[in-house]
């Protein structure tokens, strides 16, 4: 059990009478696990349920073998889950530097030196250039860097990223793909939620297809990338127009 960074077992979430997650199970043992699916299929709800931001109605979530089902979000974060939410959700009243200052040194890494403010600036030099700027005035791509930096400073053993490519131009997405790949190669485990097929196949080691609150299939990125028919069957879209 302890080898599993994240284990989700038969997870059910309701919003009122809507059955949004209908028994999702998955295990994450390292690397980049991609969750791919169309809009409204429950991907974001799954991320929020793991983080403790929405109540879980059935099933369990555990991190590193420890049960975190329905724990308050700050407990989940302290168990080593970093969260880069959909829409970035940076704090507009704080400057770039204040975001990082706020978290720097709060949670020590489990072994190793852990992330520092300077480490984040080294990864995203653009943030260093903009360190005094109010986060509300950053571009979408810069906000995404800040959201990632903020999550890294909690020294997570698993990083959940919800649609990091959303609303970003392709010229911004390409360097972001490189950064995520570099992060993964340095040993950071990532749960990547995406609608963007190109980003998901470029970054993930394995892909789970989510549809109507269930895991519908598990495919290798290469397999999905090369097979237009499979893309169409699973996602209703293809990479090529």
């Amino acid at each position: 059990m302890s080898a599993e960074l994240l284990a989700v077992d038969d997870l059910h979430v309701y919003y009122g009478s809507a059955h949004v997650l209908q028994g999702i199970s998955l295990t994450h043992r390292g690397g980049v696990l991609g969750l791919l699916g169309r809009n409204g299929m429950g991907k974001t709800t799954l991320a929020r349920a793991i983080m403790g931001l929405v109540p879980v109605n059935g099933g369990t979530v555990s991190v590193g073998g420890r049960a975190i089902t329905n724990r308050p979000p700050h407990r989940v974060a302290l168990e080593g889950v970093g969260y880069v939410p959909q829409g970035r959700e940076i704090f507009p009243s704080l400057s770039v530097h204040e975001h990082l200052q706020m978290l720097s040194g709060r949670r020590k890494a489990r072994g190793g030196d852990g992330w520092t403010l300077q480490g984040v600036y080294d990864m995203f030099p653009r943030l260093r250039e903009r360190h005094n700027v109010s986060a509300g005035h950053l571009s979408g791509g810069e906000q995404q860097m800040l959201a990632i930096g903020r999550a890294l400073l909690t020294n997570p053993s698993l990083l959940i990223m919800d649609e990091p490519s959303e609303g970003l131009a392709p010229v911004i997405v390409d360097p972001l793909i490189d950064k995520l790949r570099a992060l993964a190669d340095s040993g950071m485990a990532i749960l990547l939620i995406e609608q963007n097929l190109r980003m998901a196949t470029a970054v993930a080691d394995q892909l789970l297809i989510v549809s109507s609150g269930r895991i519908e299939a598990s495919v290798a990125p290469k397999e999905l990338e090369d097979d237009d028919q499979l893309q169409h069957d699973l996602l209703g879209v293809t990479m090529k127009a």
């Binding site: 700050h74 959700e89 704090f91 999550a151 909690t154």
Partner: peptide
Amino acid sequence: DNREMVAAVG
């Protein structure tokens, strides 16, 4: 600004 995200960073 955002209570939820403050909780989500621990």
